[in-house]
Design a protein around this nucleic acid. Structure first.
Length: 627
DNA sequence: GCAAGGTC
């Protein structure tokens, strides 16, 4: 029997060929540079296998010719207009390969990732293969990791494609296209009519773009509306003379700070009547600073933005390149736990030659330094956490920095938590409680290889329980609440991830899109990049908010609802057509309301375009003494 | 000229 296996991407087709054939396979080139066909016998099922792959989705969807031109139809018609499906231009060579291989096969076995998109891509592969071999038998291999035992099991006990999952993705594809195109055309044409000089490019709407923009605008509005508030607190400190230097040990007031001056003053005056403070408790305990979790795509992007100052999209592009070069594992993963069978030692050994972290890697390998990585809560059942697969000695610039971060993170995960010794001193003074905390770092462990985390010792004088002292400083001080900062890219990635806007592979793209479309500008303050909404971005979001929908176009709830509907389609409690009909009705209604009241958006954009810049500033008052 | 999701 001849079996044609099709994976979602080249790396997987190669891995499963290596495993199933025990490394003895023949390689054939195809019309696509990235795709190879691998041939071998698989005696376990008495079959001949050919393993190949696609590169993500094969099909693309667009409106039929009648509705492709902007001027020739009402955007509202796009909710019902016919959609045509075709093989994407850059996928024609892959399609040709599938057709040719299917012709010679008795069975088609789908090896795409085991998630919704994978199921849908599987259905696309089936539709192409059936065009050259109508009656080909279709099976689906089920695997959750590229591990020999699992891959053999998948090959020997295939199941069927889950058409419900494929259908749920179809619904999402159609819905996003209809909503996106209808709103984009309506917005663009209305605004360009009025603001010819200002708005020349597309004013896009997307069910992920707009909530993303909504986060940026919402924070901006919070910053604008912020009113600083004054607060008061008791500052208590003891100055001690240790080895010629004067050391000030500050104590934190248990009450934190108070916003009522009269109350703070009354307490303060009461406290001052007492001459001495008394140590009521000294707590000493071992403490740990935990090593980081294994690295996911979202965490890589956050760290890249915060620590390396690289845009999320840039980090992902570099990781993709390093993956292509064989230096990194697959960079799009939600998994933050390593499989128990993962071969850590071989990978650690590859890093022992590095001039910067080689000695640390050697310590992990030879001196009992290795400890199994912590397990996070996420597993996409398809890819391991991001890790280096080979040593890279010749990288430069940002490539080098990204590789270094990923490698240090991996070695840190395989190391031990840092150990310290913490002392807490609780003090009573005039009926009020204060405390100070000291730390001695005993073993740096993972921190030696992971300079991105900071943990330093803070010494305290040796206080004894029951000891009394006269405070050197006891003052009523004031301060002001500080305004929130604008969003950073790392903050935005976190918000999107939490609210289910986009996926690990697309979050960075959505951020780039709202910048490209001129909705958001990046502003550097020192070394930190903040996201500032443009006049257009604010005008759109505030305008739609003013129109007022049951579920806001600029908030994550609508996307969450789409997600929920997809789950129902997957579970079989709803059909794809029901989901589409419900959603489209809902969006049609919103579209009609949006268009009827679009003047509110126009007014918002106009006020801001004519009102000038986005500058916002609030004075930041340093803390000062009252007495 | 529109979306979001895979992938290169």
């Amino acid at each position: 029997m001849k079996v044609l296996c099709v994976a979602e991407k080249p790396s997987i087709s190669k891995s499963i060929s290596q495993i199933l054939s025990g490394g003895r396979f023949a390689t054939r080139a195809t019309g696509s540079n990235f795709v190879k066909n691998y041939d071998f016998d698989y005696p376990q099922t008495n079959a001949h296998f050919t393993v190949t792959c696609v590169a993500g989705h094969l099909l693309e969807h667009d409106f039929a010719e009648t509705h492709r031109k902007w001027q020739t139809c009402d955007p509202f018609a796009l909710f019902e207009a016919p959609i045509v499906t075709s093989v994407a231009k850059d996928k024609k060579a892959i399609e040709a390969n599938l057709r040719a291989e299917a012709r010679n096969a008795d069975q088609l076995m789908i090896w795409t990732d085991c998630d919704r998109e994978g199921e849908n891509i599987g259905a696309e592969i089936v539709s192409v293969c059936r065009q050259s071999k109508r009656n080909i038998v279709v099976k689906r291999a089920r695997f959750s990791a590229i591990i020999a035992q699992q891959i053999h099991n998948a090959a020997q006990h295939p199941i069927n494609l889950d058409m419900a999952q494929a259908a749920a993705v179809d619904a999402r594809i159609f819905l996003d296209l209809r909503i996106g195109a209808a709103f984009t055309r309506m917005q663009t044409m209305s605004l360009q009519d009025i603001f010819k000089q200002h708005i020349t490019s597309v004013v896009s709407y997307g069910p992920c773009q707009f909530p993303t923009l909504g986060f940026v605008v919402s924070r901006y509005n919070q910053v604008q509306a912020f009113q600083p508030e004054q607060f008061w607190y008791i500052y208590l400190a003891l100055t001690s003379n240790t080895s010629q230097e004067q050391e000030e040990t500050p104590f934190n007031w248990r009450r934190g700070h108070l916003f009522e001056f009269d109350v703070a003053l009354a307490i303060y005056e009461d406290v001052l009547r007492h001459p001495r403070a008394r140590v009521i408790k000294v707590t000493k305990k071992e403490t740990k600073k935990w090593k980081p979790y294994p690295l996911t795509t979202v965490e890589l992007q956050k760290a890249g933005s915060r620590l390396l100052k690289l845009a999320p999209k840039k980090v992902l592009d570099i990781a993709e390149k390093l993956y292509q070069g064989g230096f990194l594992s697959y960079p799009r993963t939600e998994t933050d736990q390593f499989d128990p069978q993962f071969d850590f030692m071989t990978l650690i050994a590859k890093q022992t030659v590095d001039p910067a972290w080689g000695a640390f890697a050697t310590g992990l390998r030879d001196n009992n330094g290795f400890t199994t990585p912590r397990k996070g809560k996420n597993n996409d059942q398809a890819h391991p956490p991001i890790h280096p697969t080979a040593h890279a000695g010749n990288l430069t610039g940002d490539d080098k920095r990204v590789y270094e971060f990923i490698t240090r993170r991996f070695l840190a995960c395989c190391s031990k938590d840092a150990l310290g010794f913490q002392t807490t001193v609780d003090v009573e003074y005039g009926g009020e409680e204060f405390s100070a905390t000291g730390l001695i770092v005993l073993e740096r462990n993972y921190l030696e290889v992971y300079p991105y985390d900071k943990w330093s010792s803070k010494e305290l004088p040796d206080f004894q329980e029951g000891e009394e002292f006269v405070p050197s400083i006891c003052e009523l001080r004031d301060g002001w609440t500080t305004k929130p900062t604008l969003l950073t890219e790392a903050d935005l990635v976190t918000l999107m991830d939490k609210n289910g806007i986009g996926t690990d592979a697309t979050i960075a793209q959505h951020i780039e899109t709202i910048i490209d479309r001129g909705y958001v500008l990046a502003r550097m303050e020192g070394a930190t990049k903040y996201l500032v909404p443009s006049t257009l971005g604010i005008g759109l979001i505030d305008g739609y908010n003013e129109i007022g929908f049951d579920r806001s176009l600029s908030k994550p709830q609508l996307r969450r609802q789409t997600e929920r509907s997809m789950v129902e389609v997957c579970q079989g409690t709803k059909t794809k057509n029901d989901m589409l009909a419900e959603s489209i009705d809902q969006y049609k209604e919103m579209f009609i309301k949006a268009r009827r009241e679009f003047q509110k958006v126009i007014t918002n954009v106009r006020t801001r375009l004519e009102g000038g810049g986005n500058a916002c500033c609030c004075p930041r008052t340093p803390s000062r003494r009252i007495r």
